[in-house]
Simulated scan of single mutants.
Amino acid sequence: MTSEDFMVNEEFIQDPHAVVARLREGGPVHRVRLQRGLPCWIVTGYDDVRALLADPRLAKDNGRMQELATAKMGEDASRMFGEALTQHMLNSDPPDHTRLRKLVNKAFTGRTVARLRPRIEEITTGLLDALDGREQPDLVRGFARPLPITVICELLGIATERQADFCRWSDTLLSTAETEDVIAAAEQMHAYLVELIARKRAEPAEDLLSDLVHATDEGDRLTEFELVSMTFLLLVAGYETTVNLIANGVLALLRAPDQLALVRSDPALLPDAIEEFLRYDGPISLASLRFTKGPVEVGGVTIPEGEFMLLSLLGANRDAERFEDPARLDVTRPAGGHVAFGHGIHYCVGAPLARLEAEIAIGRLLERFPGLRLAAEPETLRWRESNLVHGLESLPVALS
């Protein structure tokens, strides 16, 4: 495949594994364009992706990204990188990133995640009860989506009645929708979060957002901009990653009856199976955008300073140089090594929560419905219109 004319387009979204495999045949790095025309370089190999995820020569400063995008596209690109929801640790470099991560870690601890298990089990049971008796439910809408949005909203202290709004806003913000629609969703989410943070400051409760509002480290606090952006990041990341991990994992099992039988016969395999789901068909397609602070060599190609970089997590996790028979689901494969949650300083802070939710959700689903099967031909399933997330629009299943 020649990459000069290649765009991260509908074909890439609907079958990223096939597209990345063809790209890889032509070399480890290629010039491509995003749908709105932004020129980038895409990297597909495991070793290169893992190294670049932790390479300080690749930066994420949001302000500089605006300047670079404007210069490359010949128009004001500030609306692509607006400030309202982007001043968080995922879009920052040290020392700002170090400071932000340290403050968040004080509120988002392993103990916080561990104590959520009974509530996650309770929510899961309720959702499975609601599915029982339905002929061909959509597992995304009826299970994979409501579980993590309920958990993260409760963790942050967000009212139940706003969950549908957050799902809608998140879907739009991470999609390839028109710029005007993305801006409208961002403004609506921003307005609500500003109001919510003001309430948490005046009347703190026992929730993560109240902890963030009042978290300090040697007298340091999150600014108002940072609080809003950090709440957005935790909400969207805590929701989106888990929705897609659950749905993609269930689909992978239903398409591999031998692997499904193994997990059913030995539930102790489930933790390792979750890692295999993350490797095989992870919830994130491309790592969030980075740019080069100086020349960077990848596979014999020198990428100049000031270039945007796309790192294919799906491609890295199916690299035959790293994983034997990578296109085959194998729940007995030695766990770990994948980059589904990233690598380096930007490794997903919510990874333990996503793993816990997926283990409980998929385990209870298989236990409750031993006759679970796909209710649609796999080739008819559609993937969400997004460069970033890799998630199903729907997953019709038969329960018996």
Rank of each mutant, 00 (worst) to 15 (best):
Q136G: 01
R115Y: 00
E122A: 15
L90M: 13
P94S: 14
L103W: 08
R111G: 11
Q87C: 00
R111V: 01
L139V: 02
P95A: 13
E122C: 09
A107N: 03
P95N: 13
L131I: 12
F108V: 05
R134A: 15
A130H: 12
D129I: 06
A130V: 08
R99Q: 12
I120Q: 03
G110H: 09
D93P: 05
A144G: 11
A114V: 04
D132K: 15
L127C: 07
S92F: 00
E135Y: 12
S92K: 04
L90A: 10
F108T: 06
H88D: 00
F143P: 01
A144N: 04
T125N: 11
R134S: 15
M89L: 14
T125K: 10
T124V: 13
G110I: 03
G142L: 11
A130F: 10
L128D: 12
R145V: 12
L116Y: 11
P137A: 03
P94C: 10
T109V: 10
N105F: 08
M89I: 00
A114K: 15
L103S: 02
T125W: 09
G133T: 04
T112W: 07
E121L: 11
M89K: 03
V113A: 04
E135R: 15
L100K: 05
R115T: 12
T124W: 07
P137I: 06
P95F: 13
V140R: 01
R145P: 00
P118Y: 03
N105L: 11
G110N: 14
A114W: 01
D132W: 01
L90D: 00
F108A: 06
I120A: 11
I123W: 01
L139Q: 04
P118T: 10
R141G: 14
D132C: 09
D132V: 02
S92P: 02
D129N: 12
G110K: 14
E121P: 02
R117H: 07
R119T: 04
P94D: 14
S92Y: 01
N105S: 15
D138V: 05
V113E: 00
I123F: 04
T112M: 15
K102A: 15
T112G: 09
E121Y: 10
T125I: 08
R115L: 08
P95R: 11
R119L: 09
P94L: 11
L90G: 06
K106V: 09
G133P: 08
T124M: 04
R117M: 02
F143N: 03
D96T: 13
L90R: 08
L90I: 13
L90Y: 02
D129G: 05
P118K: 11
T112N: 01
D138I: 05
V104P: 01
T98W: 13
H88N: 14
E135H: 15
R111D: 02
L139D: 01
L128P: 14
T86R: 12
P118Q: 08
T124Q: 10
E121I: 03
N105C: 05
L127P: 01
N91T: 14
L116C: 03
K106E: 08
L100W: 00
A144T: 05
K106Q: 13
A130W: 10
I123R: 03
D129A: 09
S92R: 06
P137T: 03
R134Q: 15
K106D: 07
S92D: 02
H88A: 02
P94I: 05
R141F: 04
P95I: 09
L103M: 07
G110S: 13
T109S: 11
I120N: 07
